[in-house]
Design a protein around this nucleic acid. Sequence first.
DNA 1: GGCATATTCAACCATCCGGTTGACGATCGG
DNA 2: CCGATCGTCAACCGGATGGTTGAATATGCC
Lengths: 117, 117
Amino acid sequence: MTDALDTVFAALADPTRRAILTMLLEDDMAVTDVAEPFEMSLAGISKHLAILAGAGLITQEKRGRVKWCKLEPDALRAASVWMQGFGQFEPVNLDAFERFLEAELQQDASEAPFQGD
Amino acid sequence: MTDALDTVFAALADPTRRAILTMLLEDDMAVTDVAEPFEMSLAGISKHLAILAGAGLITQEKRGRVKWCKLEPDALRAASVWMQGFGQFEPVNLDAFERFLEAELQQDASEAPFQGD
DNA sequence: GGCATATTCAACCATCCGGTTGACGATCGG
DNA sequence: CCGATCGTCAACCGGATGGTTGAATATGCC
């Protein structure tokens, strides 16, 4: 009965794990490098990474002896959608947003120096 | 050092609590009524409500002997914003999007006296 | 006043969580 | 082959969490 939302929200509930995710926004990182800024044992960080991976928020790929951690922001989508049900805050009306993107695209095309294609 | 995000995400990590929040979308409810659909003691639900209140996700107001629980969706905003930092869910230039919505609105108003969906 | 209803408190329990340390298995480089 | 590096595993610890029960506290009703 343990929902995917359970694990995602639980993973996000820890500040160390949120910090790790933020770091991974920049780039993929090896476990050791992830651990470096924290005052915590490597094993501790390794556990946190396992939890993040369990929630699908990161994936880990071992190349040689180095294990690379990659952010998987898509795993946030379900949680984001769930929250959307409560609010006005999550801004976007998707329909309107698509019209917006289309309009923007056409505008860009008409503004560009080379119009014909 | 326990961040507001910690408590909000932790509160959301439990399915019972998420279900309670969903119920409260409909309307404010008394504690006993919140508890009714769950196979759990009233005291158990009371604890969950305390956690939700602690995260600011609900407020409780006692009127007579009944304590009414009210959803406070605004408490989700910080969490939502945090998530948006990772997202592709909403990669938007909000300013431009708002201008677009406004323009669309005016266009609708001038073009169609009535427009169904 | 006295009883029923609404809710919490307190104590307790099992389990999970975040963290540590130390040993271990892989893998790279010389 | 040897030593250093990368990372996890296993055992352990203290504290939080999710749940229970039973007693306690308000409040409402007749």
